Amino acid sequence: MMNTPNKLTVARMIMVPFFVLFMLAGFAGTAGKWIALAIFVVASLTDYLDGHLARKYNLVTDFGKFMDPLADKLLVCSALICLVELDRLAAWIVIVIIGREFIISGFRLVAADNGVVIAASYWGKFKTVSQMIMIILMIMNLGGFFSVLEQIFVWLAVALTVISLVDYLYKNRNVLSMQG
């Protein structure tokens, strides 16, 4: 039987296609972006909630350790790709962000293969929060002052993506020496 944190992770993954549908299909008219926004916010909150519940009630599982980061990447990467499709975000920014996720995932797999668990850093958490705020602002697309705020969060997300990658690689450089 699945515990609550794992059910939240699965629910987040199930929300992704509905998010993409409302972002891109256009059949809901202008309401589509607001429905997509609601789905994205709820899915983002499940990310916080599942981790909190798993730690608080000692419900951490191998399934959760593997699927929770995957669900997060699926949600964020889907949103970023939708924003490129809608011509709201430059593709190179999405490539930098997704590229970082592939590198970190590769490192985690190599480390896990060697019995090493690599915890998330504060830089990675700041990166995730900045990306989610950026995505929320870009979905809302309110213009005016919010356009300035969007751009600030785009650059902040890119900077934190690169900083968190460098920090991660430096702190875990021994993972590379594990390979022969």
Rank of each mutant, 00 (worst) to 15 (best):
residue 67 M to Q: 06
residue 165 L to H: 00
residue 172 N to T: 09
residue 9 T to K: 09
residue 153 F to H: 07
residue 50 D to I: 06
residue 48 Y to P: 00
residue 72 D to L: 03
residue 60 V to L: 04
residue 174 N to I: 03
residue 47 D to K: 04
residue 34 W to F: 15
residue 84 V to Q: 02
residue 63 F to T: 07
residue 124 G to F: 00
residue 178 M to G: 09
residue 40 F to P: 02
residue 88 R to D: 04
residue 156 L to K: 04
residue 95 I to R: 03
residue 63 F to D: 06
residue 154 V to Q: 02
residue 6 N to K: 06
residue 13 M to Y: 02
residue 56 K to A: 13
residue 8 L to Y: 10
residue 74 L to W: 09
residue 134 M to A: 11
residue 79 A to K: 10
residue 116 V to H: 08
residue 135 I to R: 01
residue 169 L to P: 02
residue 44 S to W: 01
residue 114 N to K: 15
residue 66 F to M: 13
residue 74 L to E: 03
residue 155 W to A: 12
residue 67 M to V: 08
residue 106 G to T: 06
residue 132 M to D: 12
residue 93 I to M: 15
residue 18 F to P: 07
residue 137 L to W: 06
residue 148 V to L: 14
residue 35 I to K: 13
residue 81 I to E: 02
residue 3 N to P: 04
residue 3 N to A: 06
residue 178 M to N: 08
residue 140 M to G: 09
residue 68 D to F: 05
residue 50 D to N: 08
residue 158 V to H: 00
residue 72 D to E: 02
residue 136 I to N: 05
residue 74 L to N: 09
residue 92 W to F: 13
residue 114 N to R: 10
residue 96 V to W: 05
residue 98 I to Y: 02
residue 153 F to C: 06
residue 39 I to V: 11
residue 27 F to E: 03
residue 179 Q to G: 08
residue 82 C to G: 07
residue 161 T to R: 00
residue 85 E to S: 15
residue 31 A to L: 14
residue 86 L to R: 07
residue 146 F to P: 02
residue 170 Y to E: 03
residue 68 D to P: 11
residue 145 F to C: 11
residue 124 G to Q: 01
residue 18 F to T: 14
residue 87 D to N: 15
residue 118 I to S: 04
residue 73 K to H: 09
residue 54 A to W: 03
residue 112 A to C: 08
residue 88 R to F: 15
residue 6 N to C: 05
residue 87 D to F: 11
residue 158 V to Q: 00
residue 14 I to R: 11
residue 129 V to P: 01
residue 123 W to A: 05
residue 115 G to M: 11
residue 160 L to C: 10
residue 59 L to K: 13
residue 151 Q to W: 14
residue 46 T to A: 07
residue 66 F to A: 10
residue 30 T to A: 13
residue 173 R to M: 10
residue 11 A to W: 06
residue 10 V to A: 12
residue 24 L to E: 05
residue 22 F to G: 01
residue 104 I to P: 01
residue 115 G to C: 10
residue 157 A to V: 06
residue 145 F to H: 09
residue 155 W to G: 13
residue 85 E to K: 14
residue 91 A to F: 15
residue 89 L to E: 01
residue 75 L to I: 10
residue 2 M to P: 05
residue 8 L to G: 02
residue 168 Y to Q: 00
residue 23 M to W: 09
residue 89 L to V: 13
residue 63 F to P: 05
residue 151 Q to Y: 12
residue 175 V to D: 00
residue 32 G to N: 08
residue 65 K to C: 07
residue 27 F to Y: 12
residue 83 L to K: 03
residue 174 N to R: 12
residue 80 L to N: 01
residue 64 G to H: 02
residue 180 G to E: 14
residue 97 I to N: 01
residue 126 F to G: 00
residue 38 A to Y: 05
residue 141 N to Q: 12
residue 52 H to N: 10
residue 5 P to T: 04
residue 166 V to I: 15
residue 13 M to R: 04
residue 57 Y to L: 13
residue 81 I to H: 03
residue 140 M to R: 14
residue 4 T to A: 12
residue 32 G to T: 08
residue 36 A to F: 03
residue 90 A to S: 12
residue 36 A to Q: 06
residue 118 I to Q: 08
residue 34 W to V: 09
residue 175 V to F: 07
residue 163 I to Y: 10
residue 125 K to A: 00
residue 85 E to F: 15
